[in-house]
Design a protein around this nucleic acid. Structure first.
Length: 254
DNA sequence: ATGTCACCTGGTAGGTGA
């Protein structure tokens, strides 16, 4: 079973690339972030025509998530229950016996800002909800755009980025807090090439110079850990014309 | 390089968010 996450930075723009990628990568599950579509505009028919089930949850202009799968997802949840978040950031469902949570974590803008405080509150709520979800669904995957680079290995210039957004001790502590629930960074279960990133700024020729961050992650529960056969970043979509600034991350379960 | 991209409002540019 193959699961993947991809921040597409506008599904309206990236829909053809997503359908192409689904056809070539053949995941069983793909979670999308930053669809930037209200629910009435979601291109459900395009997915259905290509043989994909899809659940979606969006808003105007910002955020928006979707859960694409070969088999229909069950027990679908939108956003973190009880948080009362006005921003569409989470979609969860069960597929093939795996509880799948797709999330677009807040960016946080800069440490000390109101948006950073919101990111911290959101992360608190996420952790408590995932704790409960794990009790009900031991086989669980939490994947998406975390907007957190967990370690200096995940940053192309850790000195320049020290203390900056995505790299603050507070954000990294939250990432460790998720691991403390009994989750594992699937990418780091394997030896990986140095300078592995999932996002490159559109500016500064960052992709060409391979100046990026690893901020898109797949966390797997204790119960799934032994089944993880591979976790990879697929850089190919970042080479497309009009690419997203993020590229897909995949995990293979046996 | 404050370097790009996407989307909105409100117009054919400027602001916001990432």
């Amino acid at each position: 079973m193959k699961l993947a996450t991809w921040n597409v930075n506008s599904l309206a723009v990236r829909l053809p690339q997503v359908l192409d990628w689904l056809a070539s990568a053949t995941p069983d599950v793909l979670v999308l972030q930053e669809t930037k579509l209200t629910d009435d505009k979601f291109p459900q028919a395009a997915f259905a025509d290509a043989g994909w089930q899809v659940q979606w949850f969006g808003q105007k202009t910002y955020n928006g998530v979707a859960l694409v799968s070969r088999e229909a997802a069950t027990d679908v949840v939108r956003n973190i229950p009880g948080l009362g978040d006005e921003q569409a950031r989470v979609i969860a469902g069960s597929v093939g016996g795996v509880r799948t949570i797709g999330a677009y974590f807040p960016n946080g803008q800069e440490p000390g800002s109101e948006k950073f405080a919101y990111k911290m509150r959101w992360l608190d709520a996420l952790r408590e909800w995932v704790r409960v979800e794990l009790q009900a669904h031991p086989a669980l995957v939490l994947m998406g755009d975390y907007n957190i680079a967990p370690d200096d290995r995940d940053v192309f210039d850790p000195v320049a980025w020290a203390g900056q957004i995505h790299c603050t001790p507070e954000e990294r502590a939250h990432f460790q807090g998720l691991l403390a629930l009994g989750l594992h960074d699937a990418f780091r279960l394997f030896e990986q090439p140095p300078k592995s990133w999932s996002w490159w700024d559109y500016r500064n020729l960052a992709f060409r110079k391979n100046q990026g961050l690893r901020i898109d992650h797949i966390l797997v529960s204790d119960a799934l850990r032994a089944r993880v056969q591979a976790c990879t970043i697929d850089k190919q979509p970042r080479r497309n014309e009009r690419p997203s600034d993020h590229t897909p991350v995949l995990v293979t379960l046996g």
